[in-house]
Write a protein that binds this DNA or RNA. Structure first.
Lengths: 351, 351
DNA sequence: TTGTATGCGTTATCAG
DNA sequence: CTGATAACGCATACAA
């Protein structure tokens, strides 16, 4: 058992003051004299006094922790996109004196976890990850009166809660336009799981761009799976084996793109030459330098998921600390970064 | 503000019992009659009663949370290896009713975070990540009497605390032997940062294997950097540009290996033909299907970091719940998985 | 087998 | 400006 340091009572005794005064001095209450405050702060520093989190929490109802439920429904658990988001959120939390609480659960148990968070007063608020169409979690959280911010959009974003999302539809519209401008017509879409709103939005953006150009998207060129390197690899091999292979591949993640590139090379093709590759780039920190280099390698629509994490945490803390304020919504635009993996349609893959 | 459900007092009143009896019934104390217990449990379920975490924590001193300090000293923050470990630890924690607390901090502030954890009674124990030679954190934690388990080895593993590590030295010894058996002599090592023990151990294993074979390792073929895809890519291009390029590359991570493979293909070389690639494989879940296939792609020394996370959390919870027990230490062996990226030395790269 | 009383370490209310 | 005193919600030593 870890033994704590001094507590408020001991500190007060040592100073010859009451606990009340010491508490007020430390918590920045205005009515305490400057002389006393200085003396108290000095003593607190000397004794390395810190208030017990559980005692403070019991007294105030606040925990200074934000919850994150990690569901492990599909085989994959914590994917790198998620952990980069957490890294960003963690930065903000640390800055504001909050901790991040992570709880793993089956997807069906997620409602129970929120209830648990509230009944046991474990967190002050939560981040909702991976919203789906008509996501039931929104209603649960509202009925629990637990502050929350959605990373992504639920209820088409018109709901009365805070959210932050990337304009995925426009990002994939633009990405498709870019490929169309290069002369590509047979464009494969390697999307993420489309029960998730962000992936559905991306698909819609792609389809809109195609139809705006008077083209019909070939459903056989579209797929939706968890965003793994192996998905890009396997799917690309399948696509290349067809009678009419695509001349361009649009990927929902740089991880997928790595697999696509690997498969292309294995088939003796060069990305940007025979087949163009364009990916959505979450600016993952461990792939960072692949994209953030002098001459970008991968052509991509980019928006930092870590920055999103930072901002979402800010929004959540604001909801927690000023619940009377109105919810905020932000829609970020991804930027197009032109690298070397895209080029005009040419060669064997001409359609 | 989230409004809680019923508390113990209300539940007791409702049942016409004392808080004590209700508490005991719920916590499985033997002295309560079965009839009463059943009645209490039924009522608790009906009211969805859950004890307040802060109140319970204040009364017992336990928090049912384990801490993880994430330092962001180098640019990279949460790398995928870390998050996969967390996923494993999270599984165990969930199973035992613990939550994972994540706090981000600068490396220099880590000592302060542990003190904060203890003084404010925020967690019951912590996982120590990325131990270095003569890691000061061990002493801090011991002096704080905070239960901890090290993922990796500190103090050469002879210290009086629990730890779990992979036998990195042997893994890289074996990996090197495997390449030597294939006839490779010029072997490049793309290691992780060598101030971390695991990387230092890997280097040692590699060097030992070389010297056992009567060979001298060429320091110009060895490098140590954060384990990014871009590192593998850039470094491979450098190596290939030399007068005497290596015929084999030994990587500290599959992420690095992906970059190596990409660079090889860009140079018109095929992994397993002109240049062999062997990686340490943490069995990262999002790369899982690339490596866990019928015919493995990448030749690798494999040990699941997620399984390590599961086991470390078990060990930590055991330390927390039975501090009088003796610490445990486990050294896991990585298994060799032969894939297609290695082959006998041949062609241009013959040395 | 059940109940009473007290402590856990803060914060907050209300006097002075 | 400062100080008693009462919550906060649970666990537990001690009585009955």
């Amino acid at each position: 058992m870890a033994r704590p340091s001094v507590n408020l009572k001991q500190l007060a005794e040592q100073l010859g003051l009451s606990q009340t005064t010491v508490s007020r001095a430390l918590n920045g209450f205005p009515e305490v004299s400057e002389r006393t405050r200085a003396r108290v702060q000095e003593a607190a520093r000397r004794c390395d006094y810190r208030p017990s989190a559980s005692a403070a929490s019991l007294a105030t109802g606040r925990t200074f922790a934000v919850g994150n439920v990690v569901t492990q429904s599909d085989g994959i658990v914590i994917d790198p996109h998620f952990s980069d988001f957490i890294a960003g959120a963690g930065e903000t939390c640390a800055r504001f004196g909050y901790d991040m609480l992570i709880r793993m659960a089956e997807r069906e148990a997620e409602a129970g976890v929120y209830r648990d968070f509230v009944s046991r007063r474990r967190v002050d608020g939560v981040v909702v990850h991976g919203p789906t169409a008509a996501d039931p979690r929104i209603a649960w959280l509202r009925s629990l009166a637990l502050p929350f911010v959605v990373h992504g959009r639920a209820d088409d974003g018109k709901a009365d809660h805070s959210w932050l999302d990337v304009n995925n539809e426009r990002a994939f519209h633009r990405a498709t336009d870019f490929l169309l401008d290069l002369g590509h017509r047979r464009i494969a879409l390697l999307n993420g799981p489309e029960h998730l709103n962000f992936a559905a939005d991306r698909r819609r953006g792609h389809l809109r761009a195609m139809s705006c150009a008077g083209l019909e998207a070939d459903p056989r060129l579209m797929s939706a799976e968890p965003m793994l390197e192996s998905y890009g690899h396997r799917r690309t091999r399948e696509l290349l084996a067809r009678a009419e292979p695509p001349s361009a591949v649009l990927c929902a993640s740089t991880l997928i793109a790595l697999g696509v590139v690997r498969a292309l090379y294995e088939s003796g093709l060069q990305p940007g030459r025979q087949v163009s590759v364009l990916a959505y780039d979450d600016d993952l920190s461990f792939l960072h330098p692949s994209t953030r280099v002098e001459v970008p390698y991968l052509t991509a629509m980019r928006s930092s998921i870590r920055a999103a994490g930072r901002r979402v945490a800010e929004m959540l803390i604001e909801r927690i600390e000023r619940p009377e304020g109105s919810p905020r919504a932000e829609l970020w635009e991804a930027e197009l970064v032109v690298g070397t993996t895209t080029g005009p349609v040419c060669g064997m893959a001409r359609s």
